[in-house]
Simulated scan of single mutants.
Amino acid sequence: MEVKEKNSVMLELHDLSITEKKDDRFARVVTSLSFNEDDLVDIAVSRRTDFSENTLRAAIDILKNIAIEEICNGASVQFGLGYFHLNVNGVFVGDNAKWDSEKHALSVHVTPTAELRKAVKKCTVNVRGMAASPMAINSVIDVASGTTNQKLTPGAPVNVEGTRIKVEGDKEGIGIKLIKEDTKDETLIPATHISTNSPSKLSFVVPADLAAGDYRLVVVTQHSSSKVFLKEPRTFVFDYLLEVDA
């Protein structure tokens, strides 16, 4: 589908504290909407497609299952907007080394298609100045796997780095939450699981019984640069989905 000129993204600026220049900024894309497969099907039907909702959903499920099967058999698969193939993580010692699930793992690498890369280049970009809230999460480091902005390991610690993310306040809903992407179920991290709680860093232990799936990390706080809490909580939803393995 050809991308039209009306496609655009909005950016907000944040302080770039790692440089010595006080006026250095970095930009974030403002993500106001999040779509799943059902949402995309609804949009397609609303545009008077010749296919019904059930037909579209069935086609997606069939193709998705075939793609998963072939990827798990070692194939490189183009599906949707990306190219998928397997990577091998871990070091093998010796010419006759064997697979050890404690040391080795398979992961999925995704490369955007040329069509998507071309479409993104055509987007109109608008910068609306400094973000209204200075609060931001920059990175989420899963200590067990050593990955950044990718995974969460149940029962293991996580380090979150950002700006003004200290969890404090007296309003309802304050805390660190993990929201399951498909069901929208919320898991609140107990205060006893939080070991570091500062404006620039949070450390907490992922609940050991957290179900497998994709999660969004959400921080809600009334923290401010003064000793007085903000009147209303601020909420920051991390940009990346975080995977929890079965």
Results as ranks from 00 to 15, higher is better:
A75L: 12
V77T: 09
V77Q: 09
Q78S: 12
Q78H: 11
F79K: 02
F79D: 00
G80T: 08
G80N: 09
L81I: 14
L81T: 14
G82Y: 12
G82A: 14
F84N: 08
F84A: 07
F84D: 06
N87V: 10
V88Q: 12
N89R: 12
V93W: 09
V93P: 05
G94R: 06
G94K: 08
G94I: 09
G94W: 07
D95F: 13
N96K: 15
A97I: 14
A97Y: 11
A97R: 11
K98H: 14
K103E: 07
A105R: 05
S107H: 08
S107G: 11
V108E: 08
V108F: 09
V108Q: 07
V108C: 10
H109Q: 15
H109K: 15
H109R: 15
T111V: 15
T111A: 14
T111P: 06
P112L: 13
E115N: 11
E115Y: 12
L116D: 07
L116K: 10
R117K: 15
V120L: 14
K122R: 14
C123V: 14
C123K: 11
V125N: 05
N126Y: 13
V127C: 10
M130S: 05
M130Y: 05
A131Y: 06
A132N: 09
A132G: 10
A132K: 13
S133N: 07
S133R: 07
P134I: 02
P134M: 02
M135D: 05
M135K: 09
A136D: 11
A136Q: 08
A136E: 08
I137W: 01
I137Y: 01
N138D: 11
N138I: 07
S139Q: 13
S139F: 07
V140Y: 04
V140S: 02
D142V: 00
V143M: 03
V143N: 01
A144C: 01
A144G: 00
A144W: 00
G146T: 04
G146D: 05
G146R: 02
G146I: 05
T148S: 06
T148P: 02
N149L: 04
L152W: 01
L152C: 02
T153M: 01
P154N: 01
A156R: 00
A156P: 01
P157T: 00
P157V: 00
P157Y: 00
P157C: 00
V158D: 00
N159I: 10
E161H: 11
E161V: 09
G162T: 04
G162E: 03
G162R: 05
T163Y: 10
T163E: 13
R164Q: 15
I165N: 05
K166S: 03
V167W: 00
V167A: 03
E168W: 02
G169D: 00
G169L: 01
K171Y: 07
E172T: 08
E172W: 04
G173H: 04
G173T: 03
G173R: 03
G173N: 03
G175K: 04
G175M: 02
G175H: 00
I176T: 01
K177F: 12
